[in-house]
């Protein structure tokens, strides 16, 4: 179809050919703009980070210090915080998202699932700063007064995992950050899962039900095996979002340059570090460059995750 459209007819060949050529050039330029956008982001980050990488070398990534007084910077703590909160978010969000997707596709009637599905997607539209304020006003006190004291008295005494749940109950910290992120990414993951579950051939499920399988057995043994790749892709998509999240985390993470076992202890993430410290760092200073270097690391981590996610989700689209 497209071929025939490009070949100009004999009647108005010249004029038409020009119009089409101009139009094709314009849309191609717009497409190149997209590539320049992402490529430019990576290049500018790398350029801004050159000072920090030249001064500290590769050790920047594993250095725990962040000391503006001695001009000594390292990204270990924010990288640690970014990974810990994002992984916590995934651990908490995946079961929730899976439960919601199963509920929407297998349990609820189509009409109710439509309404509830829309409500869940509205949660994805709420801006991240609102999650931050809600987290600070509701979740932090709740964690500090109930969850953390209780957990440190019970789970904190269990050998092996005990150290994870000990520490002063500030309310802010890695666990609270992970929980906020989990609430934020659950709608994204469940939307992907729901679409995949719905795209399954109905005859597969129907035959399984016909053989007498229970609903859970159908989900566990028919739906999940068929949709594994895309489900993992959806989870990676959520992980990518969680890694780069800024405003919500800044409110509840506690903002301390800290690495430790306790999930209750305050920490920071790359994004929250940039949001807080960038306005106070002079252009061209070592701190500025170190923040750019941290941003560059965040870029690499989140792009890597997103590339994996897109590849996993694409294999399915191509395979169908």
């Amino acid at each position: 179809m497209d071929r025939s459209a490009t070949s100009p007819s004999a009647l108005t060949g010249v004029a038409r050919g020009n119009g089409d050529a101009v139009f094709a050039t314009i849309v191609r330029c717009a497409a190149v703009l997209i590539l320049l956008g992402l490529g430019g982001m990576v290049a500018v980050m790398a350029w801004g980070a050159r000072g920090a990488f030249a001064t500290f070398g590769p050790a920047f990534i594993v250095d725990k210090a962040w000391n503006p007084v001695t001009q000594h910077f390292g990204a270990a703590a924010p990288v640690f915080g970014t990974l810990v909160t994002a992984l916590l978010a995934i651990v908490l969000a995946v079961p929730l998202a899976f439960g919601i997707a199963v509920w929407l596709t297998e349990i609820a009637s189509a009409r109710i699932a439509g309404v509830i599905g829309t409500l869940i997607q509205l949660l994805a539209a709420v801006p991240s700063i609102i999650f931050g304020m809600w987290g600070f006003a509701v979740l932090v006190p709740f964690m500090a007064h109930y969850v953390e004291p209780f957990a440190s008295h019970t789970l904190g005494r269990v050998p092996g995992i005990g150290p994870l749940f000990r520490g002063a109950p500030y309310g802010t910290g890695f666990l609270t950050g992970g929980m906020i992120l989990a609430v934020m990414i659950t709608p994204f993951i469940s939307a992907v899962m729901r679409d995949v579950f719905l795209s399954m051939p109905a005859v597969l499920k129907e035959s399984a039900y016909g053989l007498g399988m229970t609903r859970w057995e159908v989900v566990r043994r028919i739906i999940l095996p068929c949709s594994r790749t895309s489900v993992v892709g959806g989870i990676m998509l959520g992980l990518g979002r969680a890694l780069g999240e800024t405003m919500a985390i800044t409110f509840v993470i506690g903002n301390a340059n800290h690495i430790g076992w306790s999930l209750f202890s305050p920490g920071n993430t790359i994004a929250s570090l940039i949001a807080l410290e960038f306005p106070e760092s002079a252009m061209g200073s070592l701190k500025f460059s170190s923040l750019m270097a941290a941003g560059f690391l965040l870029m690499l981590i989140s792009l890597g995750t997103l590339v994996c996610s897109r590849l996993l989700l694409r294999t399915r689209a191509a395979g169908r």
Binding site: I34, M41, L298
Partner: peptide
């Protein structure tokens, strides 16, 4: 282009600000 555009869709927005 589609792949890159999808990446931009979920790129950390604070890095867009830095850029």
């Amino acid at each position: 282009v589609r792949f890159i555009s999808d990446l931009l869709l979920s790129a950390p927005s604070i890095l867009v600000g830095l850029f």
